[in-house]
Design a protein around this nucleic acid. Structure first.
Lengths: 336, 336
DNA sequence: TTGAAAGCGCTAACAG
DNA sequence: CTGTTAGCGCTTTCAA
């Protein structure tokens, strides 16, 4: 039982393939094909169970109706929710999503993009990592539709959408300060991404707004990618030596491991130390006590990213800014 | 700046496209093309930055070097780890993975498979859900390479790989029984999948092995997909009315929510109730007390699945059984 | 040893 | 109003 092709059904009806093609693409007016012929074609196609051969269409048109979502870690928490809303949103526009992860390796990112280009993907949704800058620029130069998600490069021309990192940290800090905490530590990582810088900036600004002196030794910068064990140990040592009244984790994986550190130190939350974290995590609601966190508006990020991309691909035009930051939500719980 | 095509480089060298094609595919011997010509061709292709047009190749050969991984929930925990190992393993064989989720809707699964077939994917890795049976059978009939992961249909001809569910539950039960618990409740769900049945069977067998009478009222069967709130409430009510000495959760999401129920009841683990769970979760290590769980050998499942699929695709031949169950690992922690 | 040529299935310019 | 035809870029058979 072979596939039925356009040609097959054209032959059966004794009409030309082009007639069939146009009708089936709903463009019969352009060819001014008679209504009864159109009906016959549609009926025959349906009866034969015809479905277009996407690969052939793609080869012919240079389009694939596929967009790629490239993240650095497909098993991450943020990705999981993002993927879902993006998929749903993209489907509404008749596209499909191809998920890819670079596993935090730049080389793999390049390779991946080359490959995706070979597969004729129509657009890219990318959560950029350091060093990807030139790659993305070259995509831009080739006029490929690209939208950056969750981060961006300063000065980039690419549209992007991400949470307002500074605002998020400010909200968390305000919450801490109004709780009476003044010796507030920050645990961040050394990833050279805008969002980390913004979070640090938010921290500093909040301190000065609260007239608290900034102390460099209250900041721990961990190496990204170091083994969990080491991370936990480092955070423990840091907290032990600094004895802060409160600690703000600048990423959810830092918070998750930080909790472990605090547990090892046998400190009670919030009695011995208050805890707050940027980016929420399933665990934080369930933890005893529940951990206060800043939640990213993942859904909104997803839908906005798709909208921007559709605009870039000329599918749907939107007005207004193409570089967007969205407000986060402070989830006050029991750890402060 | 246009793509360079095979033809371009053939034209530049004044040779035929077929010569170029054969050389670039490393099949020059078959055509017995001269070594110096081959070298020239390779050099020119490299200089021109030639990369084959995958879509054209796919159209011509009917192959795409893409394998689809279809799961019901892409944001699930199990998927995350599975995806990573599968991706790594598949790449070793020169293939790519296309991740897809059906969102637990059968209709979407069908649609998805049709689509993937249109894109010429070469093989399928599927975590089956009830009702998918006929879909998978039809794939099998079309001689499409398919490997089932994490579940299977009784009597299916398709190769599959999954954890030994019965063994896992037995290990957990033995652990519980040897801890002196005799009134052991089981919280499961109503999904009509082999693995749930196997878990139930493991539970019953373990009871009789320990000479404990099976009591139907010690089993709670929750509706899959009911809202979290409801689930938590149901588990609370169940535990409260049955007052078991220990509870075994048959899936990790049940465990996670069960923990919440226990917390609401203000019961102390393991003092008031011992807890064990099938399928580990990040949370269980961090929870206080840490929760004993049966860990699935996800990596092994992934690599085995890929191996089986490669065999099905005729890429690599393996011997031995094609329907495989792998032993789980009991992670003893503090909740028993 | 090499090259010409026939398509894979579809679209779209062009000619009736 | 409708049909012919020329490819998209590549593989592979067949002839030279």
């Amino acid at each position: 039982m072979k596939r039925v092709s356009l040609k097959d059904i054209a032959a059966k009806l004794g009409v030309s393939t082009s007639a069939v093609s146009f009708v089936l693409n709903g463009r019969e007016k352009e060819m001014r094909i008679g209504a009864k012929l159109a009906a016959r074609i549609r009926k025959a196609a349906h009866q034969a169970g015809y479905t277009p051969h996407k690969v052939a269409v793609s080869l012919r048109t240079g389009k694939s109706k596929i967009v790629a979502l490239i993240v650095d870690d497909i098993s991450g928490n943020f990705f999981a929710s993002l993927a879902r809303t993006i998929e749903k949103e993209i489907e509404r526009h008749g596209y499909r999503v191809f998920y890819c992860s670079t596993g935090n390796q730049l080389a793999k990112g390049e390779e991946l993009i080359r490959l995706l280009l070979q597969y004729q993907v129509d657009g890219f949704l990318i959560t950029p990592v350091p060093g990807m800058e030139s790659l993305i620029d070259s995509l831009l130069q080739q006029k490929r539709p690209v939208v950056l998600v969750d981060s961006y490069f300063p000065g980039t021309k690419a549209p992007y959408v991400l949470v307002d990192n500074r605002l998020g940290i400010s909200a968390a800090m305000k919450n801490l300060v109004s709780g009476g905490y003044r010796k507030i530590a920050l645990v961040m990582n050394d990833v050279k991404l805008v969002q980390m810088q913004e979070r640090l900036r938010g921290y500093k600004e909040s301190l000065s707004a609260a007239k608290i002196r900034f102390r460099k030794d209250l900041i721990l910068t961990t190496a990204y990618g170091e083994p969990d064990q080491v991370l936990v140990r480092n955070i423990s040592a840091f907290l032990k030596s600094q004895q802060p009244q409160a600690v703000l984790f600048a990423a959810n994986y830092l918070g998750v491991h930080g909790l472990e550190s605090i547990h090892q130190l046998q400190w009670e939350i919030p009695h011995d130390i208050a805890v707050s974290c940027f980016d929420d995590h399933e665990l934080f609601q369930l933890y005893k006590p529940a951990i206060t966190a800043i939640e990213q508006p993942v859904e909104e990020i997803g839908t906005t990213a798709v909208q921007l991309l559709m605009h870039e691909m000329g599918v749907e035009s939107i007005h207004g800014k193409k570089q967007i930051t969205l407000p986060p939500v402070l989830r006050e719980r029991d750890s402060v």
